[in-house]
């Protein structure tokens, strides 16, 4: 790991311990507090991976992955907030050379609601008032949307709360019905797919952070929780599953933390990380028994977030098709 990456990891770890750990439950219940958002901005996490000439900090990709990984371990919502702004919004704005809008995001003046339901099939219908329904980020003042025609639009507007709905995951970001007041074309579905393709390492970092956060919780709990007068860790089915999860996690982290990993390896990593995060979070909840089912214990959020993140940004069909085409040296897996 290079010096910049190591420094980044230590900084984010310290930040998460000091500013997020005790607030993680509050984030789930009430959304990311403004004070936390301000600190994220102060630290320069938003815009960190954008080139200096575009107004960013020019952070290398490994350091950026480490940052997302460490944030996701404590609060997947906070990590996702940074990820969506850095990897989707700012990259999209950057491709259109919209420096003013970029600065507004980096300074915290603007925050974007995101709607990409079209990526995974049919689009969630707009509201009768033209609102973009169920957009991610309930405290946004701008939006970015992939519409049914495959065009990306962005603009200003107002986020309205959604009644009788509690999102499955990323509750710290929340969801809203976003009512646009302006609309500007800023790309195509293909642009977004390309952005997500080069963000595989960052997406893997989110999944692995979630997995490690959950596994850490499970290790801590099974060490102290006793049943039939023995700590849970003494039982084979518990200890062996934890050992398996930890082994997979360490192997995948090895690739995540490798500076030299290319795009295809990152795509492979994303696929395996998504799968591990679902498995690890499920076992972590199960090993907590009834307590795992309550939000107070901070483990069910990893389970929810893992599945929600999968639904929002993970594209197994498209990604596997790319991988298969590399193996077969041509088009494959399309029937």
């Amino acid at each position: 790991m290079n010096e910049q990456a190591e420094l980044m990891r230590d900084t984010v770890k310290e930040f998460a311990d000091k500013n997020l750990k005790d607030l993680a439950l509050k984030v789930e219940r009430e959304g990311i507090p403004d004070a936390v958002k301000e600190k994220i901005l102060e630290q320069g996490f938003v815009g960190s991976n954008l080139p200096v000439e575009m107004g960013g900090a020019g952070l290398d990709s490994l350091s950026h992955r480490l940052m997302l990984f460490e944030l996701a371990k404590v609060s997947p919502s906070v990590a996702a907030y940074v990820f969506f702004h850095n990897d989707v919004v700012l990259k999209q704005l950057s491709s259109g050379n919209k420096k003013d809008l970029i600065q507004s995001v980096i300074s915290g003046k603007d925050s974007y609601a995101l709607s990409f339901s079209r990526l995974s099939g049919e689009k969630i219908e707009d509201g009768s008032n033209g609102a973009i329904r169920r957009a991610l980020n309930e405290k946004a003042n701008r939006y970015i949307e992939l519409d049914a025609s495959g065009t990306i639009f962005a603009g200003e507007g107002k986020a309205e709360p959604v009644k009788n709905f509690k999102p499955l995951g990323l509750r710290g970001m929340g969801v809203c019905d976003f009512l646009p007041s302006s609309k500007e074309e800023c790309g195509t579905k293909e642009d977004l797919e390309n952005i997500l393709a080069v963000s595989s390492g960052d997406i893997a970092a989110l999944f692995l952070g979630i997995a490690e956060g959950a596994v850490d919780k499970a290790i801590e709990y099974t060490n102290v929780r006793k049943t039939f007068n023995e700590p849970l860790k003494n039982y084979e089915p518990v200890a062996f599953r934890i050992a398996e999860l930890k082994s997979e996690l360490e192997m995948l982290k090895f690739v995540l933390f490798d500076e030299g990993s290319d795009e295809i390896r990152m795509l492979m990593l994303k696929d395996l990380s998504a799968s591990l995060s679902r498995k690890a979070t499920k076992y972590a909840l199960q090993f907590h028994g009834g307590y795992g089912y309550l939000e107070d214990f901070g483990v069910e959020k990893f389970y929810r977030d893992s599945v929600a993140l999968n639904a929002i940004i993970y594209r197994p069909v498209e990604d596997k098709r790319i991988l298969a085409s590399k193996i077969y040296f041509g088009k494959s897996g399309f029937i």
């Binding site: 990409f116 339901s117 990526l119 995974s120 099939g121 049919e122 969630i124 329904r133 169920r134 999102p167 499955l168 995951g169 679902r278 499920k282 599945v307 929600a308 999968n310 639904a311 929002i312 197994p316």
Partner: peptide, 14 residues
């Protein structure tokens, strides 16, 4: 339920 979430993606999420 997990598999259905994978199949339905964002539509399932909502």
């Amino acid at each position: 339920a997990e598999t259905a979430m994978e199949i339905t993606g964002q539509i399932g999420l909502n």
